[in-house]
Design a protein around this nucleic acid. Structure first.
Lengths: 195, 195
DNA sequence: CGCAGCTTTGAACGGAGTCAAACTAAGTGG
DNA sequence: CCACTTAGTTTGACTCCGTTCAAAGCTGCG
């Protein structure tokens, strides 16, 4: 159980456990030597955290709770014990790391090649799809992260995030009241996201 | 043996073999549905290609030779056979995927948070370090990729790449004649790269 | 030689950043 | 319970970095 703003782990810390999110949400990010931050992911219940650092043995990212969050901690020792008994565990872990690589590739494409409109549309649809998979409403949800955090993640300023939200609202693509969002035209959002 | 411009593999193709580069160089990239491209890495002798796609079983990136390149192909079957005999192979693969995730995190930081100057300085120093590790000169080398490809990788236009090269040359940080580069002040470049 | 591709530089434009200010919601403590 | 504080959101005005468009120069190859 961690409160908003608390860290699950920090950069360079040895990896002792990995985390499964039960409730709440978490952001992960990397830091430059001079303190700049790039958020690399937002994580919701059902997702695993920390596996990406399992081979270097030290965390390369930091994880902070966006709200009160319940996590299930799995000690590395336990994981190793299982993987000796069941070799397919290693296959599973390869699969999870592969998925992470693909997610990162998508984010790089966004950061390197997309406009502000395309970035926010992509972001909202990605949230929508993850909620759909978990049987939450894919069109009406509450964002647990601030405009600032969205902007950081998407590589744009928080003001630009606000402006794009306003534009989308004026064009009837969505309705938003602070962090409450209702997607009104998924198809058109999809067209924008694809560029 | 592949010639400049030839593909080692393409997106969605099933993964039958992975590749070790012997000589030459290769770029890997992801594509959007509408054909935009983001280069995700340049690869030099000694590096492995294709492992990132081992779990989804289909390539998510494409790999193209930047020049005449010799690769050693390792069939997945062989890899699997070994990994049944030697479990530590799986650990090795986890390590390689972890490294790839860290590389991608660094690139995301660059794409999301760095200026054009910082991007090119970071890029040149990264090349420099990789050459140093392979016992090539870390200060004098020949780039195998075009300005256009550098720009695509760094998320800036080819013209901006040219302009930053010119700036750096005027400030005595490096000397460049087309693709031949000589780094003259690693320390100052490092300061720029850190931002 | 002549062409095609790559590189370089200039000029003008524009999207997003920055700075600033008004507004809102949510705490917090008296 | 309410005044006050604080964090977050929104909008406007201006600026600037990097893009785009255009043109000229260079290089290597057929």
């Amino acid at each position: 159980m961690v409160e908003r703003g608390e860290l699950l782990y920090r950069t360079n810390e040895p990896v002792r456990t990995i985390y499964a999110i039960r409730t709440g949400s978490v952001k992960t990010y990397v830091l430059t030597t001079n303190g700049r931050m790039q958020i690399t992911g937002f994580h919701i219940p059902g997702e695993l955290l920390g596996l990406g650092a399992i081979a270097p043995h030290n965390f390369t990212t930091e994880a902070m709770a966006l709200e009160t969050t319940m996590v299930c901690e799995v000690p590395i020792k336990v994981l190793e014990a299982y993987s000796r008994k069941i070799p397919s565990i290693c296959q599973q872990m390869l699969k999870i790391l592969s998925q992470k690589i693909r997610d990162n590739q998508e984010l790089m494409l966004l950061l390197g090649k997309k406009s502000a409109n395309e970035r926010l549309a992509t972001f909202l649809l990605s949230i929508s799809q993850r909620f759909r998979r978990r049987r939450y409403s894919p069109t009406e949800f509450n964002l647990s992260m601030s405009r600032n955090e969205i902007g950081n993640y998407l590589g744009i300023s928080e003001e630009t995030v606000c402006r794009v939200f306003s534009r989308f609202q004026n064009e009837g693509l969505l309705a938003t009241e602070r962090r409450q969002v209702q997607l009104l035209d998924l198809e058109r959002l999809d067209n924008i996201a694809r560029g």
